[in-house]
Structure formats: C-alpha cells, structure tokens
C-alpha cells in the first residue's frame, strides 16, 4: 500500500525510493520500458471499454441533452438525484452500525484478555464469506417482523451484518498494533476500560475507522440484492437498483437507448468520485482486511 501512496511524493522522494527499492530498478533497457507501457496501456484500454462504450452510446442521439434531461427530470418516477440520496443514506446507516460493532468488538479482541478469545475470534471470521443471497429468506422474514420494508435502515441492517466480520477483523488487527504501553499507562492512572476505549483506542484507531467508513459507503453503493428485496416501492430505488428501474422505464428506440446509456454513466459517477477521492482509504482498508494477520 505504501507503493501507492508513494506516487504523491516529490521528485526527491522519488529518487530516494528508486535507490532503496530494487523493484524500481528491474527495468533497465528502454525497450523493456516501452514494452511495459504498451502492455499496461493496452490492458487499461480494455478495462475502460465498457464505460467508454457507454459514453459513446449515450452521446449518439441528442448528445449532452440526455444528461441534462436525466439531471432535471425523473425517469419512470425515479429521479437520479433520489437514487444517489438513497444510496448515501443507506451507506450512512451501514457505516454507523459497522463502526459501533467493529470498534467495540475490535477492542475486546485486541485489548482484553478473556478465555476462548482466539476461538471466538475465529468463529467470527468464519462468517466473512457468507454470500448475502444465502440469508435472503430469513432476512426477508426478519424485515417483515420488524416492519422495515421500504426503510433505509431495513437495507442497512443486513448490509452491516455482512460487513461486520470484515470490520471486526480490521479493527482487531489495528488494535493489536497500538502499543500496549499506552493503554497500560492509562490503566495505572486508574482509567477503566471504557475510558481507555473512548479516549485512547477510538482516537488512535481513526485511520482504520476512516477506511471502514469509506468501504461501507462503497459497498452500499454497490449493493443490489438488499434494496431489490426490501424496497418494494420503486421510487426508493438506489443507484445500483436504478440500473434495472431505468431499463424497465425506457424502451428500445435509439433515442431511448442513448438516454438509458447516459443514465448508466450517471449512475457510475458516485463510484468514480469515491475511487478518485477516497483511493488511499479504500486501498488501505481492503489490503488490511485481506491479509489476515
């Protein structure tokens, strides 16, 4: 992950890392450098193809007018702004739930001694891989009993349940790297665990909590499954869901297809913004969660 943050460094820092990092010296010949660039650009072009083709198609008929229309009037009763709003609101609840549970559990697993700690932690991790669709039936019933259909919290709850194992892993790993001496000193001064948690653990874990928050937003933005089942009211559609809503609302004529593609591009905008501005947080979070210490 340092390799990525390094890009922002100044020229002098760059020179220094080149000397230290042998990886930056493995390409010596000009021809090899060219080959690497050609391959990278080729692959980047392939990866950009779907978005590029969407943009081309969206401008085919009516040009930029499609975008203006989408931003100013709803399609099939769904305004694109509302889909952004819904996704963000769900993301907010999702993040809050995950932060509370992960921070408290992360503290317990990293800073407290209790019998069966490692076994319990392993049991928690076992659920890292649960596919959402596999708990659809019970979640449907729970949502019904709690009367949470067509509410943002109703979608955020199952999303949070599936993110929590990851969040606990992240915070526990992070907590283990906070020097024991810090909390030790506080304990000697008579501070209890709740004060240590609030005044030392939480502030020091801020980077991990930030990573987790951004990831929660991204995952809410991506989630299609839970809104699809829990939002029965089409006007509640989230960005990921609107892909379907718009497809049903718009026909197959060339102008409507162009409009549809423009809507797809607009629905990608929040993700693009998150990646552009939250790249470091996303990368750090994903990498820290992927390598189970």
């Amino acid at each position: 992950m340092t390799a990525i943050t390094r890009t922002t460094g100044s020229a002098t820092r760059r020179r220094k890392t080149v000397e230290r990092d042998p990886l930056q010296r493995i390409v010596t010949r000009r021809s090899e450098r060219v080959v690497i660039y050609v391959l990278l650009i080729l692959m980047a072009a392939v990866f950009a193809m779907p978005l590029y083709s969407g943009i081309v198609k969206s401008l085919g008929v009516n040009g930029i007018g499609n975008y203006i229309a989408l931003l100013t009037q709803p399609i099939g009763n769904v305004s694109i702004w509302a889909t952004y709003g819904n996704s963000l609101l769900i993301g907010l609840f999702h993040a809050l739930l995950v932060l509370v549970v992960s921070a408290t559990a992360g503290y317990a697993f990293s800073r407290l001694e209790f019998p069966g700690r490692e076994v319990t932690f392993s049991a928690v991790l076992l659920f890292l891989a649960v596919p959402g669709i596999a708990i659809l039936v019970p979640v449907y019933s729970i949502t019904q009993q709690a009367g949470l259909f067509n509410t943002h919290i109703g979608v955020a709850l199952p999303e949070a349940a599936l993110t929590i194992p990851f969040g606990v892993l992240l915070l526990r790993n992070y907590g283990r790297n906070i020097p024991m001496a810090l909390t030790e000193a506080a304990h000697l001064d008579g501070a209890g665990h709740f004060r240590v948690f609030w005044h030392i653990f939480l502030p020091l874990s801020r980077p991990a909590l930030a990573n987790l928050t951004v990831l929660c937003f991204i995952w809410s933005l991506q989630d299609f499954l839970w809104p699809a089942f829990i939002f029965t009211d089409p006007s509640m559609a989230t960005a990921a869901q609107a892909v379907q809503t718009f497809s049903n609302a718009l026909g197959q004529s060339p102008s409507e297809l162009a409009m549809y593609n423009a809507s797809l591009i607009l629905l990608a905008v929040p993700a693009v913004l998150f990646v552009l501005f939250g790249m470091r947080l996303i990368v750090n979070g994903l990498v820290a969660g992927g390598t189970k210490e």
């Binding site: 692959m43 779907p50 969407g54 892909v243 379907q244 990608a268 993700a271 693009v272 990646v275």
Partner: peptide, 19 residues
C-alpha cells in the same frame, strides 16, 4: 483497474450487456 470492482456490479454487467 479498480473501477470495475468498485462500481456497482449491476452497472458493470449492464454496460457489458449494452456494449
């Protein structure tokens, strides 16, 4: 390289479908 996996999968697949 990261965008496809960080944008909604429904959107990525739909873009393929459209293309």
């Amino acid at each position: 390289f990261l965008l496809p996996v960080l944008m909604p999968l429904s959107l990525l697949a739909t873009l393929f479908n459209s293309m």
